[in-house]
Amino acid sequence: MQPDSPQARDYVLIQDLAADDRPREKAMRNGIKTLSKAELIAIIFGNGIKGKSVLTMSQELLARNDGRLSTLARKSIKELVKENPGIGPAKAIALVAAIELGMRCRDESPTERPRITGSKSVYSLIRNKLELLNHEEFWVIVLTRSNHVLDMFRLSQGGTAGTVVDSKLLFKKVVECGDVAASIVLAHNHPSGTLKPSVEDDRLTAKIKEGGKLLDLQVLDHIIVTHESYYSYNDEGRL
Rank of each mutant, 00 (worst) to 15 (best):
Q7T: 11
E25G: 11
N30E: 14
D10V: 09
D21H: 11
A38N: 00
A18Q: 10
R24Q: 12
A27Q: 06
V12A: 08
L35A: 06
S5A: 12
D4V: 09
D21I: 06
T34D: 05
K33W: 05
S5C: 12
P6D: 01
A18I: 01
G31I: 05
A38Y: 00
D4C: 10
P6H: 02
E25H: 14
D16P: 04
A8D: 07
I14C: 08
D10L: 12
S36R: 09
S5V: 00
S5F: 08
E25W: 05
P23V: 05
M28E: 13
I32Y: 14
T34G: 08
D21K: 14
P23D: 01
D16S: 04
Q15T: 14
P3W: 02
T34E: 13
Y11N: 09
I32P: 06
Q15N: 06
D16M: 03
D4A: 14
E25A: 10
R9N: 01
A19I: 10
V12G: 03
L35K: 06
S36D: 02
K26H: 02
P3G: 00
L13D: 06
D21E: 15
A27W: 02
D20M: 09
K37A: 05
A8P: 05
R29E: 12
K37F: 04
T34W: 08
P6V: 01
A8G: 06
A27R: 05
R9V: 01
R29L: 10
D16W: 01
R9Y: 04
D10T: 15
P3H: 07
R29P: 03
A8L: 07
R22V: 03
A18G: 02
N30K: 15
R22L: 02
Q15K: 11
D4Y: 13
A19F: 09
L13N: 07
S36I: 02
D20F: 11
R24E: 05
L13I: 03
R24A: 11
Q7K: 08
L17A: 03
